[in-house]
Amino acid sequence: MLKFKIVTPEKTIYENEIFQVTIPTMEGEITVLPNHIPLISVLKAGELKFKDKEGQQQMAVSGGFLEVRGKNEIVILADHAQRVAEIDIDKAEEARARAEEQMANLKNAQDVDYAKLQAVIDRELNKLKVVKKYRKLP
């Protein structure tokens, strides 16, 4: 068993013992099993899968770090993470559309806003991608 913890700046999303976890990193997707060597890596936007006692679960994550500590502990510091079951497709779609619209409106704005909006768009797109993979579209 692995002690698994995923936290975002806003709160701790999940904390429990799991069997394995598959994480999207900059270097490609990796799967961490018990007795993994200590590792620090950088997350990429994508889908995070883990198996706990209740079976396979999915999350949409976007950016951050992961730290595999000795003693079967894994900590993920994500910029944003949401469980697939909790993602609201309409809301995500709406947020993305709003961000894109704002982006179109501010062509010559400061790069601060630009980067922020781009991050929002990436995040929402990723959420949608992950969610659509697991839910049948109407």
Binding site: P38, I40, S41
Partner: peptide
């Protein structure tokens, strides 16, 4: 728990991790 970072593996590398 305080860990000894010397035996850590870094991906892509230390500097990049630090920069992020």
């Amino acid at each position: 728990v305080k860990n000894n970072l010397t035996d850590y593996l870094f991906e892509p590398n230390r500097l990049d991790v630090l920069k992020i």
